[in-house]
Design a protein around this nucleic acid. Structure first.
Length: 466
DNA sequence: TTAGGGTTAG
């Protein structure tokens, strides 16, 4: 290898070391270990572990099943699946594995998405007739990660036949898996079984299913389950309230959101940022200025203070109400704290543009570029629209070129602004509609045509590498 | 080395 200028690497040395070790030639193994060190090759994690194993072996220490489980995880983590399997087999055949170790192996495969291998370990366990609830739990988790939802449910159903009783963890896992996979109805069935088994002692599994219903916009089902939870005397916490408040905030229903805020307060739970952000979002949506201001004030006086999201909502609201000074005040305060983001700037830009205050709008656009806050298609379109409206055609073209360079896919709004630029530069409507047709026919060559038309009309050199 | 819930806009 050295002659061929293909110097050995860590793996090469590792193979040589373990080969000699296998043949009990410790001197040679040590020789290669030293050579490896001399070559300034740091053994990787696997090599280090293998060296350790070798040392243990030499000293006559037995490797126990806990070490084996750790080895499985390590080999799987390094993509050495076959080796992980060899170690598992060795211990499985020796028959000295515990339930903890079988489940640790199942979980090691399952966590990395190797559902088939996890299944194989589970089957080995089944053959040994040593199944406990642990193996079922980790296998259900593995099916969840592998998106085999039916298999997860079926495995649960088979537990009884194996004489194994589902525990809190079994139910929680399955409910969580089904809820987050958008099967709230199925999750609800297991939740009821869990309740009947007397295994529910907090609202977490209810919350998982409630939020799954909310995600699918089934608010009635979500509320019904919430009521069912109350009937079982399971106490809601701040997160459940947050889910429901946000659901009704999105639906624009102040009355219902308020019901849950009141219930939350009555339960002695203080609101947090998540809750107040939902409320500000809601009040902005329905134009409730006073209520939004109150919620914002509460946030400001809280420990964490108002965040960028809620401040942006307020800017949005003030813009709608043409309360420029108030919007500016929030904008400046965000800027002072270095918390203004792309949304903040874009909303200020829109506000000034809407009021016809182009000078100020353009200042915002310039700052956006300088601060690197121009990244989104919508922001680009806002800036581009402003430049074309204000007759700043070269800036419009520059912005468009930047967009193309940044691989931001332009849309119909982008080309509408660019069409205005061409029109104001004396290009006929017919020519513009031809450019539009070219773009619709073939995006790539159509884009080139637009760039060419714009650069020639604006007398800009343009590099068609773009 | 078994399981779990919420917010993000123009």
């Amino acid at each position: 290898m050295e002659k061929l200028r293909c110097p050995p690497d860590t793996r090469t040395y590792n193979i040589l070391i373990s080969l000699h070790a296998k043949h009990n030639d410790i001197d040679m193994a040590e020789f290669y270990f030293k050579r490896m060190k001399e070559a300034q090759l740091e053994p990787d994690l696997v090599s280090q572990a293998e060296a350790l194993l070798f040392e243990m072996d030499m000293k006559g220490h037995k490797i126990d099943e806990y070490t084996q489980s750790a080895l499985t995880r390590m080999y799987i983590g390094s993509g050495m699946l076959e080796k992980s399997w060899l170690w598992f087999r060795r211990f499985h055949l020796a028959g000295n594995m515990s339930s903890e170790c079988y489940s640790a192996n199942i979980d090691a495969y399952g966590e990395r998405g190797y559902t088939l291998e996890a299944e194989k370990v589970f089957t080995c366990c089944l053959e040994m007739k040593k199944l406990s609830v642990l193996e079922f739990n980790v296998m259900i988790k593995a099916y969840g990660l592998g998106q085999s939802y039916d298999k997860a449910s079926k495995l649960f159903e088979s537990m009884e036949a194996h004489g194994v009783v589902a525990d809190k963890c079994t139910y929680s896992s399955l409910i969580q898996i089904l809820a987050s996979a958008d099967f709230p109805e199925k999750a609800k069935l297991y939740l009821r079984k869990m309740q009947d088994a007397g295994l529910v002692n907090d609202c977490v599994p209810y919350c998982a299913v409630i939020s799954s219903f909310v995600k699918l916009d089934k608010l009635e089902a979500a509320v019904a389950l919430y009521e069912e939870m109350l009937a079982f005397d399971v106490k809601p916490d701040i997160i459940v309230y947050g889910v429901l408040i946000n659901a009704f905030a999105n639906a624009g229903s102040v009355k219902k959101a308020t019901t849950y805020v009141d219930a939350m307060k009555k339960a002695g739970l203080p609101g947090n940022t998540v809750i107040y952000n939902s409320l500000i979002k809601l009040y902005t949506k329905v134009g409730y200025l006073k209520e939004a201001q109150e919620a914002y004030k509460l946030l400001q006086s809280s420990d964490t203070g108002a965040d960028t999201y809620s401040s942006n909502c307020m800017i949005d609201l003030y813009t709608e109400q043409s309360m420029v000074e108030q919007a500016e005040e929030i904008f400046e305060s965000l800027n002072r704290k270095g918390q203004a983001n792309e949304f903040t700037f874009a909303m200020m830009l829109c506000m000034y543009k809407r009021l016809g205050r182009f000078e100020e709008a353009i200042q915002i656009a310039k700052q956006m570029k300088e601060l690197g806050l121009l990244t989104d298609l919508l922001s680009y379109n806002n800036v581009l629209g402003l430049y074309s409206l204000d007759g700043r055609f070269r800036e419009a073209m520059g912005t468009f070129q930047e967009m193309v360079k940044a691989a931001i896919q332009p849309d119909d709004f982008t080309f509408r602004s660019l069409g205005i630029v061409l029109l104001k530069c004396g290009i006929s409507k017919l020519a513009i509609s031809k450019l539009e047709a070219a773009r619709k026919k073939d995006a790539r060559s159509g884009l080139q045509a637009w760039l060419l038309a714009l650069s020639s009309v604006l007398e800009i050199d343009y590099d068609d590498d773009l």
